[in-house]
Design a protein around this nucleic acid. Structure first.
Length: 597
RNA sequence: UGGGGAUUGGUGUAACGGUAGCACGACUGACUCUGACUCAGUUAGUCUAGGUUCAAAUCCUAGAUCCCCAGCCA
């Protein structure tokens, strides 16, 4: 993760609203001082439910939460909010840990590590707190079925009802204990908070705190058949971990009154020194909501991503076309680029949709600085240099990364037969086409100037090969210098090439956006209708032989084409590359303009 | 027809009663052995209507539009 020291890093940007809030808290020492650093306490967390793979939207949250801990010398926890055994799996726990770590969220290592936690490890404490609420007359066991509760829910102006609301405390206590030891079937009873059945905020209409689920849990096994609901559990998790700023997305704004009600109810009757019947006051974190990330040309919901995987619309969770963290990692995005992107798009309460181009640019920007270059040809066209001797080769210097002088140079081998890109040749070129054409001279990068002398076609009239002559005075790609010290000739175009005598072949997977519409599903109501049929093209390319030793995950720029990385599918003797991202292409734009008049 | 939020160029995002700024995109141009990168310039905005004020994106009033909420999901 070492940044180039010559890179000044991200420029100063103004504080966003959460940072302002934290700085105000720090100034007033609202959360006290940390024992180790003596600095104002800042403790954040990322609390995923392990029921799916993390995606780029989660990345924004991870970068936000970890970034705040880092910025204010605080701590960052990874916490699995695993309160629903029916949906959660160990596979997801493992993938989430890997993805958070990859993004730089160092939850268990380094100065900001807070640790990894599981809501399910707090079930005993939560159970005790629940009994306290029953004792305080703030919770009761309800025997309405889910269906009946629905019917009795009321409307914005009509209150809800429950016939069990005023049952004696002792009775609720007895039933709650019996719920815990498995005496009742699923759905037969719940523990409900006694708040306000007439509240216009439905979350306060006596919400369920516990439901009975006879199902094995990935962490606690069969110890429990009683599972806490999100609203009840979440504030307690934050409290137990000493979280200062409990950051979540906008849809939880309506839940904040409930979050606070639970904490205030627990603290009712508690004292700072623990005197009195209920003990010491517990920590009450502040919930803060921000707008989650939305992207053009992208579907970002766990439910729909799961469908894409299950219905085999993609090859899996880590199909490089997916917006999951594991997919973009496989595709070759760097976590550095994702972090820069997350920082650039900011953090507000405005629900905005970010142009996917911003993410793509962040990746280009990062890889431009770091990716070694190669010359590789995706769609080969053979060129024979007629005035180059048969069998002779020439070893020429190639600059590994012009953006990074320390990367140095290496050799590339030139010969009588080479491959160039099909689209770098036109028999009848338009005006601003600076590449190879009959009678037209171009530079072969780092090699020689060549002039096209002829075209070979098959019976169908398709171009199958090209003939050319080279200028021996241009070795290395430099035009000869005249007596005045100036180049004697200039060419407008420089194209890449690879020697036919030593090129290696590899599978290359060309990805395009998974969706062809800016807002998938907007047109017909079904995002499936906007799937891009051309989101994957697999070709066999002619590569720079230096790539023969590349290992999975290695990233390169194929000059003039884009960034490519080795896919894990690669095996000994069988290279597979993913196209991470194309380069910007001003010529494509120009050519498109000409085509459209 | 209840409650909770939001609204500034094409897209994001600042400005917290005192010159509407920045980034991305787009468009020009410069540079270039990657039609890349980089650099310079241009473009374009305060949801609407009233009001307060010397002065309003900011304060007040009324309205408009969009998002969230009636899971024993999170």
């Amino acid at each position: 993760m070492a940044e180039n020291p010559s890179n000044p890093g991200p420029t100063e940007r103004p504080l966003h609203f959460i940072e302002s809030l934290i700085e105000a808290d720090n100034a007033s020492q609202r959360w006290g001082l940390a024992d180790d650093s003596g600095l104002p306490r800042v403790h954040t967390r990322f609390p995923p439910e392990p029921n799916g793979y993390l995606h780029i939207g989660h990345a924004k949250s991870i970068c936000l939460n970890f970034g705040l801990a880092k910025k204010y010398s605080g701590r960052f926890n990874l916490r699995f909010d695993d309160t629903n055994p029916a949906k959660e799996e160990q596979e997801y726990v493992d993938s989430i840990k890997r993805d958070v770590k990859w993004l730089g969220g160092d939850f268990d290592d380094g100065p900001n590590a807070g640790g990894v936690f599981y809501a399910s490890n707090y079930f005993d404490e939560m159970y005790e707190f629940a009994k306290e609420l029953i004792l305080k007359g703030k919770a009761y066991v309800c025997e309405l079925s889910a269906e009946e509760v629905g019917k009795r829910r009321g409307s914005p102006t009509v209150p809800a009802t429950s016939p069990y609301r005023d049952r004696p405390i002792e009775e609720s206590m007895r039933l709650f204990r019996e719920m815990k030891i498995g005496r009742f079937p699923n759905g037969s009873k719940t523990l409900r908070a006694k708040i306000d059945l007439a509240s216009p905020n439905f979350n306060l209409r006596d919400p369920v705190m516990y439901r009975i689920v006879h199902e094995s849990h990935h962490n606690t096994g069969d110890k429990w058949c009683l599972y806490p609901m999100y609203d009840w559990a979440h504030g307690l998790e934050d409290s137990l971990e000493g979280i200062t700023h409990s950051i979540c997305t906008l849809e939880f704004e309506n839940h904040r009154p409930l979050y606070d009600w639970f904490m205030n109810s627990i603290n009712e009757g508690r004292t700072p020194d623990g005197s009195g019947p209920w003990g010491r006051i517990v920590h009450h974190s502040q919930q803060i909501e921000f707008a989650k990330l939305q992207l053009t040309y992208t579907v970002l919901s766990k439910r729909n991503l799961l469908r894409m995987v299950n219905e085999k619309l993609v090859r899996g969770w880590d199909d490089p076309r997916m917006p999951t963290i594991s997919a973009i990692r496989r595709r070759g995005f760097t976590s550095r680029a994702v972090r820069a992107f997350a920082d650039e798009v900011g953090c507000t309460k405005t629900e905005s949709v970010i142009d996917i181009g911003r993410l793509e640019n962040a990746v280009r920007h990062d890889l431009n600085k770091h990716a070694p270059r190669t010359m590789s040809v995706l769609r080969p066209l053979k060129v024979t240099i007629e005035n180059w001797p048969e069998g002779k080769t020439d070893e020429l210097d190639f600059v590994v990364n012009p953006e990074d002088p320390s990367a140095g140079t290496r050799k590339v081998s030139f010969g009588r037969e080479i491959y160039i890109e099909q689209e770098d040749f036109m028999e009848t070129p338009p005006k601003k086409f600076f590449r190879l054409a009959p009678g037209q001279e171009v530079r072969l990068r780092w090699a020689y100037f060549i002039t096209c002398t002829g075209v070979e076609k098959d019976a169908g009239g398709n171009i199958v090969a090209v003939r050319a002559t080279y200028d021996p005075a241009t070795r290395g790609g430099d035009a000869p210098v005249g007596p005045d010290g100036k180049p004697t000739k200039k060419v407008k175009g420089t194209i890449h090439w690879v020697g036919a005598h030593n090129a290696i072949e590899a599978e290359v997977r060309l990805f395009d956006r998974l969706f062809a519409a800016e807002a998938p599903g907007e047109r017909t109501g079904k995002w499936e209708d906007d799937l891009n049929p051309n989101s994957l093209e697999v070709i066999t390319a002619k590569l720079d032989p230096a790539l023969a030793s590349a290992a999975p995950g290695d990233t390169f720029q194929f000059e003039r084409l884009g960034y490519f990385c080795v896919d894990p599918d690669a095996a000994a003797g069988k290279l597979v590359f993913n196209r991470t991202m194309t380069l910007k292409d001003a010529w494509a734009k120009e050519a498109g303009r000409e085509a459209n008049g």
